[in-house]
Amino acid sequence: MKHMASERHTLSILVDNEAGVLARIVGLFSARGYNIESLTVADVTADHAVSRITVVTSGPPPVIEQIMAQLDRIVPVHRVLDLTALGPHVEREMALVKVAGTGAARDEALRIADIFRARPVDTTTGSFVFEVSGPTSKVDQFIALMREVGLVEVARTGVVAIARGAEAV
């Protein structure tokens, strides 16, 4: 099993929005040695009763299957969905990227931001904070370019994801 190629999977976990539920999920990953590449959580129903956790994890297919089964065992978990396995879905994350500099570097930062449709949400005469969103690869690429023009700090949300089409999961 450990010799099989690792795959990246995006899981959606619907849980009761109750105290300690996130600790149950995160603790399961650490206790059993599973990877978490990113994790987001927020309540998603009108009555605030259900939270949706999006976890990006990686492992060989049997490990992904075991992660799903282990998550499903947790009492306050409603459903566990492997969006990667289910088919077409949209993944997005957002980053706030702080860049400091003056002169040509500053101009270049603004030009690149425009190409990436990153919005300046804060500015001083010597800095910008850009808001950029998109697939992880786009955010990675934007941050890589910003490194060359004065990147000082990054905050990222991690991935949120949802299946394509009219149906709810």
């Binding site: 049997p62 299957e65 075991q66 089964a69 282990q70 499903d72 065992r73």
Partner: peptide, 11 residues
């Protein structure tokens, strides 16, 4: 009766 017991160590 435990789904996670299936295929945990032995396929």
């Amino acid at each position: 009766i435990d789904r996670s017991a299936l295929n945990k160590t032995v396929r």
